[in-house]
Amino acid sequence: MKIVVLVKQVPDSGAERSLRADDNTVDRATANNVINEMDEYAIEEALRLKEAHGGEVVILTMGPDKATDSIRKALSMGPDAAVHVVDDALHGSCAIATSKVLAAALAQQNADLIIAGAESTDGRVQVLPHMLAERLGIAALTGARKLTVDGSTLTVERQTDEGYEVVTASTPAVVSVWDTINDPRYPSFKGIMAAKKKPVQTLSLADLGVAASEVGLDGATSAVLEHGKRPPRTGGNTVEDSGDGGVKLVEFLATEKFV
């Protein structure tokens, strides 16, 4: 089974993040750039499937030159190889353009299974797995908290607010996963040392047959027009307890429709 895992490099969500003043895109230069957290669960799931069923795991990343760091880190967990789509023209691409580029790269891979994190911590739009499935004409099993493979049949427990749904499809398919699906491994030292020797194929837009005009800020179907800092939190109300503190708290909760 050949599995391609989508890995995105994002600014560390645990640190200060910002958008650029000049074009409102993510400021990567000042950020601590890391693997999108949810993608680590996707990698782990792919590695477990490979360990159970054999096959190959390939990382696919679209991102700037510096995304190489995250690709190497992803490879240190155990995948076999990586494909890095890198092109200056991609800067500022919207989800639709990104899906066009990734679909073109996936078309070269003939994967049985494509696994993605359910969302990235920078964009948080959650649409990419669906868009890719649509472009590739294959099933999308999204929001998985459990994935089982039996031959060419995929069964997913799709996490919902109320519980979960059981959804099945045949390979090839796109599966997106939440962080409830597994517990990602730490890279082993052997894995870290082996990662730098693993093949990383670099592809440009021209290699994928995608025109520069279809992607990037100019080709974007959506763009951020302006941005500002989140206003600081205003102080809450302090309830003084003069014997009626309980009543006041209940009144507050009732006013805010919490009870």
Binding site: Y186, P187, S188, F189, M193
Partner: peptide, 22 residues
């Protein structure tokens, strides 16, 4: 042991073979 920490600076026999600095 899961990451290869035990005997990490030794080579062969299941050891990671990392550098002395590591």
């Amino acid at each position: 042991a899961e990451v290869g920490l035990l005997g990490m600076h030794l080579s062969g026999y299941g050891c990671a073979g990392a550098s002395a600095v590591a």
